[in-house]
Amino acid sequence: MNVFRLAGDLTHLLSLVVLLLKIVATKSCRGVSAKTQELYAIVFVTRYLDLLFSFVSLYNSVMKVVFLGSAFSIVYFMRYHKVVRHTYDRELDTFRSSFLVAGSMVLALLINSKYTFFEVLWTFSIYLEAVAILPQLVMLQRTGNIDNLTGNYVFLLGMYRGLYILNWIYRYSTERRYWQMIVWVSGIIQTALYADFFYYYLKCWNENRTLVIP
């Protein structure tokens, strides 16, 4: 554990708190992509199956349970809550997320480091996480004025990925046997997807106006 990894995890946690706060406090999920949230739920389930048979640290296990719980809470609110579900902009959330799931599964079957059930599912979760933000990014472009909490949620998610890259650089330069090419390549692609959003987020923040993605 290093400071970049810890900061990354805490930023990830904070992003989920911000999103849940927006949904619970404003009783609205306007501008939030249910497809992205469902993809994250799939990512966490397939990656954290190892909760059942492998233990790394109490920190890891607690975080895994928290991430799973928050992902399912968000999906529950967006799909089933009697008030919140009516605020979901279905017609703006049209990305075909099933293609992302299928593509990630095919890639995980082709490129993995060990051809076992759990390893392939874990690899699938890495590939799917890399692209899971796409429905949300497309939806932001279609939504007019993006509210602060939604913008901050996506910004924090992008920060979390950036901090993970710093964590990998740190680990690579300090640990003797540290090599995880699948995670690195997927993570760099995932972070690159935020570049456009970051540009407009910082530009609007600098000019002190509401976030709009052209």
Binding site: D9, D50, S113, W122, N167, W179, Q180
Partner: peptide, 10 residues
């Protein structure tokens, strides 16, 4: 390298 990766990150 085809060594299975340690899954020690989240």
């Amino acid at each position: 390298k085809d060594v299975p990766q340690d899954h020690d990150e989240l």
